[in-house]
């Protein structure tokens, strides 16, 4: 019988049990969860964090497989693209491993199972023009998650500059923030994204409650160290580009997006002590 390491007050205990009822993945992160509750100086901080955790989407393998199949089904049956003229590409720009390549690798299996056994996959954005010149003029961008949409918008602009001639582009993501996805759709490109999220605070609170929630989150972020090597907390405040995401694919060995509120993954406290964080964000040099 495992004894509780840190004793919880009744309200905190009930909050933890309610969270477990909704999110069983939190059961395996009890120490981190308790630490998160304990950094709160008052009820409003605690209430906000518990509220955000209730809204969290933490995909397991079964759900991920389901979404991968939906993406493959869209590409084959709904995109209007043909196998012979399509290239399915990751949006990876440099030579660092990233989740876009991971999802591409997963999707190719779903595509194969659904009859597209010979489709061209491209694991680097820079290789798209070469395949375009070989007749692959129908392009699918694949990525795991869209936050503010800034990265994708940059890739689309780059693609429009790089390709000499007409092309069709459609984009597929496992999950994304509604405001980021809309920016892409406003350019006239079709997006397939089975999981669309509202911003954790800005789209879920209004009026005085919104102002209070924003102030509370800022106070929580003040408990974290401002700089770690070249990374500045300011850049990730409320998630990168203020994305306010509540999503992770960690249970499928994924990397938590930097779009998620940093209070859940920023690794050090103000005094530089290491945190036992609920989530892990791999970012080079962020330790």
């Amino acid at each position: 019988m495992q004894k509780a390491k840190k004793y919880l007050k009744k309200e905190d205990f009930n909050d933890v049990i309610n969270l477990y009822s909704k999110h069983s993945w939190l059961c395996d992160k009890e120490d981190s969860l308790v630490e998160l509750i304990r950094i709160c100086d008052n009820d409003s901080e605690k209430k906000l964090l518990i509220n955000l955790l209730h809204e969290f989407s933490f995909l397991d393998q079964k759900l991920l497989d389901n979404y991968l199949n939906l993406i493959a089904d869209f590409i084959i049956n709904d995109s209007g693209f043909c196998e012979d003229s399509t290239q399915v590409s990751a949006i990876t720009y440099d030579d660092e491993a990233d989740s876009s390549q991971k999802i591409l690798d997963y999707v190719k299996v779903s595509l194969f199972k659904m009859e597209w056994s010979n489709v061209k996959t491209v694991n680097r954005f820079g290789a798209i023009p070469k395949n375009f010149n070989n007749g692959k003029k129908q392009i699918i961008f694949i990525d795991e998650f869209v936050g503010s949409g800034k990265t994708i918008l940059g890739r689309i602009k780059q693609l429009e500059n790089d390709l000499k001639g007409e092309f069709d582009l459609k984009l597929c993501f496992i999950a994304g923030m509604e405001h980021g996805l809309k920016k892409i759709e406003e350019l006239g490109y079709e997006v397939f994204c089975p999981l669309r999220f509202l911003r954790g605070i800005s789209d879920r609170f209004t009026g005085k409650e919104l102002k209070a929630a924003e102030d509370t989150m800022l106070k929580l972020e003040l408990k974290l160290i401002e700089n770690i090597n070249s990374h500045q907390l300011f850049d990730y405040s409320f998630g990168y580009n203020g994305a306010e995401a509540l999503y992770s694919l960690e249970s499928c060995s994924g990397n938590t997006p930097n779009s998620v509120f940093p209070i859940f993954w920023w690794p050090r406290y103000k005094n530089s002590n290491a945190r036992d964080t609920l989530l892990t964000r791999y970012e080079k040099g962020l330790k």
Binding site: Q2, K3, A4, Y7, I17, E30
Partner: peptide, 13 residues
């Protein structure tokens, strides 16, 4: 929980 100080996870499960 307060009687036996069992971890919330084990109690919940």
């Amino acid at each position: 929980y307060s009687r036996y100080k069992i971890s919330p996870k084990e109690l919940f499960e």
